[in-house]
Amino acid sequence: MKKYAGLFIAGTILILASCMEHKTIQLPAAYTTKTALPDNSIYQAKQQWQNQEGASFNLDTLRGKKTIITMVFTSCGYACPRMVENLKAIEEKLPAAKKDQVRFVLVSFDTEYDTPEVLKAYAQQYQLGTNWTLLNGSAAAVKELAMLLDIRYQQLSSGGFSHNNKKILLDENGVLLYTEDGLDNSEAAILAKL
């Protein structure tokens, strides 16, 4: 009986020792942590946003594709719709191979009115596809992003906003590649940068 007990203990020790053996497992690249953002990345901003689906959103979620970003408000009757149409024209002229490599982001100045529901209706009204993200955030988030993008704005007593009209092209890590100011620019310059 003692002989079997000794064998049992020895076997158990061998099994436990093999279970405790340390093995290094190499994870696929998709499971490793993201590399650090460059110091001049817009995506360093840590403010929280909500997208048109009502989901919480961080700017660093935009990593991995070139991004054309601008700031608008949905109740704007003149400049903002023209900006959206201009961005849609850029999207339409992208070569087919590039269409999935570029995303478009509209950030609202109007923190009160432009709720995710309003942004979703706006996206539907302008037939914005799946590579468009519309964002609503706090007044502090809007102010910080506007400063980072060098977009000047001011709320008017009428409830609207006075603002400059900039289209900003960011690289895959949120670093500024190109800025274009104005409503009547051709798509050629920004398409050349893409």
Rank of each mutant, 00 (worst) to 15 (best):
A97N: 12
D114K: 03
L194A: 02
E144M: 07
I13M: 11
A29E: 15
K3H: 11
T33L: 05
G77T: 15
F73P: 01
V118Y: 00
D39H: 06
L149D: 04
T111M: 07
K2N: 13
V175A: 07
T130W: 02
K167L: 13
A10S: 06
L119F: 09
Y4Q: 11
L169F: 08
K66D: 11
Y122A: 05
A36N: 12
T179V: 13
F161W: 04
F73L: 05
A79D: 10
M147V: 10
L145I: 10
Y31A: 11
N173W: 06
R103T: 14
T115A: 05
G182L: 07
T35C: 01
R103G: 09
L170P: 06
E53P: 00
Q47S: 14
K120H: 13
Y153E: 07
D181N: 13
H22C: 00
N58T: 15
G160W: 06
I190H: 01
Y31K: 04
D181Q: 12
M20F: 04
A141G: 02
F109S: 01
T61Y: 11
P116C: 11
L106I: 02
M147T: 14
A189C: 04
C76Q: 08
E53N: 14
N131G: 10
K166P: 00
G77N: 14
F8H: 00
T32Q: 15
D114M: 04
G137E: 02
Q154V: 09
D60F: 03
E112V: 13
K3L: 15
N58F: 13
Y31L: 15
T35H: 10
K66P: 04
T179D: 11
P81C: 08
T35L: 12
A188Y: 05
K66T: 11
N58M: 12
L135N: 06
C19V: 07
C80Q: 01
L170T: 07
T115C: 08
M71K: 04
P38F: 11
L156S: 10
P28W: 02
L37M: 12
S186K: 08
D114E: 10
L134K: 02
C76S: 13
I25K: 07
N173H: 13
E180Q: 15
K193A: 14
Y113I: 02
T111H: 13
E91Y: 04
D39K: 15
N51R: 03
E117K: 06
A139H: 08
A139W: 01
Y113S: 09
A36H: 05
R103S: 10
N40V: 04
D60S: 11
R103C: 07
Q124E: 15
L37T: 08
E144I: 01
V102L: 14
E112L: 12
D184G: 12
Y78S: 13
F8N: 01
L148Q: 14
P116N: 10
S41P: 08
L119C: 10
L7A: 04
A188V: 13
I69K: 03
Y153D: 08
A29V: 12
L191I: 06
G6Q: 09
L14C: 12
A192M: 01
S41K: 03
L37I: 12
Q47W: 03
S75I: 02
L87F: 06
K99W: 09
